[in-house]
């Protein structure tokens, strides 16, 4: 029983990690007023970049950084569309979600002789090394280093958003861009930075799936995680810690799927697999009306209009 509990906590932390990175990306982008439905696509790009770079260099940290960089590059596209061209941010995000898997698979097949998955790549370390706590009841608490990084990033984002001048500006731009503009704050620059940052974080999220949880990129490595992360942003009221907590909840449902699926439980695995998605809808039903989005979220800012 106790071992099961530890296992449940371990798996929850593990599976919530990619979601947390994705959700942090969503928080920073939406706080600046840009809806980013493309988080999913940016995570896919990060996932393939991490596994590929890690495989070729043998250094998973290079893979992790490559994932951030590639995610940021894709996010740049979204920024150009939604900030400079005042495009429909939903369509742009959807386009990125189409483009990214194509790009990811194309790259994968190009580098690995037409295979739709990468070979096994070196993984990022666990916090206590490969065999830390091995043999003890707490073995499953030796989590991936990305799990710790996710928490560190959450704290940093909270500090930046609420305790520094940049955070004040980001929040102002997301609430009332015209007000920020009249005080000489470059709304476009702030939004570009935030969207690119969100891509980087989403890229890290992809990496924490393919070089931490599993050790390769596959077509289904990222399947809806970006969207669950977006739901976590709403559930978490657009705050870093709120999103973090929401992701833990979603990670927990994922852990339940694995724990229940493993035993001699009567529920078929396909039905269990629906749990995280159904859970997301239920959570949204319960909480969506009660949280308030940044006022200018999703509204392109055109200079000279109010």
């Amino acid at each position: 029983m106790f071992a099961n509990l530890i296992l449940l906590i371990g798996i929850t932390l593990m599976y919530s990690t990619p979601l947390i990175f994705g959700a942090l990306g969503g928080v920073i982008s939406e706080r600046s007023g840009v809806t980013n439905i493309g988080i999913e696509g940016m995570m896919v790009i990060g996932a393939v970049a991490a596994a590929t770079a890690s495989y070729f260099t043998g250094n998973p940290w290079i893979g992790f950084l490559a994932a951030g960089a590639c995610g940021a590059l894709v996010a740049l596209l979204h920024a150009v569309a939604s900030v400079s061209f005042a495009a429909d941010q939903t369509i742009s995000g959807v386009a990125i979600n189409m483009l990214a898997p194509g790009l990811a698979l194309f790259a994968c097949r190009r580098f690995f002789d037409g295979a739709a998955m990468t070979p096994i790549a070196p993984k990022l370390p666990k916090i206590l090394g490969e065999s830390g706590l091995a043999g003890t009841a707490f073995a499953n608490l030796n989590v991936n280093v990305t799990t710790v990084l996710a928490l560190v990033f959450t704290v940093i984002m909270w500090f930046v958003l609420y305790k520094t001048k940049w955070g004040l500006r980001v929040r102002a731009v997301g609430e009332h861009p015209a007000a920020a503009d009249t005080l000489g704050i470059d709304v476009y620059k702030v939004r570009y930075c935030c969207v690119i940052l969100s891509g980087m974080l989403a890229g890290f999220g992809g990496a924490s799936m393919t070089i931490a949880i599993i050790a390769q990129f596959t077509q289904t490595a990222i399947s809806g995680h970006g969207f669950i992360a977006m739901a976590a942003v709403i559930f978490g009221k657009w705050t870093p810690f709120g999103a973090y907590g929401a992701c833990l909840l979603f990670g927990f449902t994922q852990a339940l799927v694995i724990m229940l699926g493993g035993g001699d439980f009567v529920v078929p695995s396909q039905i269990l697999s629906m749990l995280p998605y159904a859970m997301t809808i239920i959570v949204l039903i319960l909480f969506v009306g009660r949280s308030v989005a940044p006022k200018a979220d999703g509204v392109p800012y055109v200079k000279g209009s109010r």
Partner: peptide
């Protein structure tokens, strides 16, 4: 139209 951020 005041240029004030309402929740600040």
């Amino acid at each position: 139209h005041f240029m004030l951020v309402e929740n600040f």
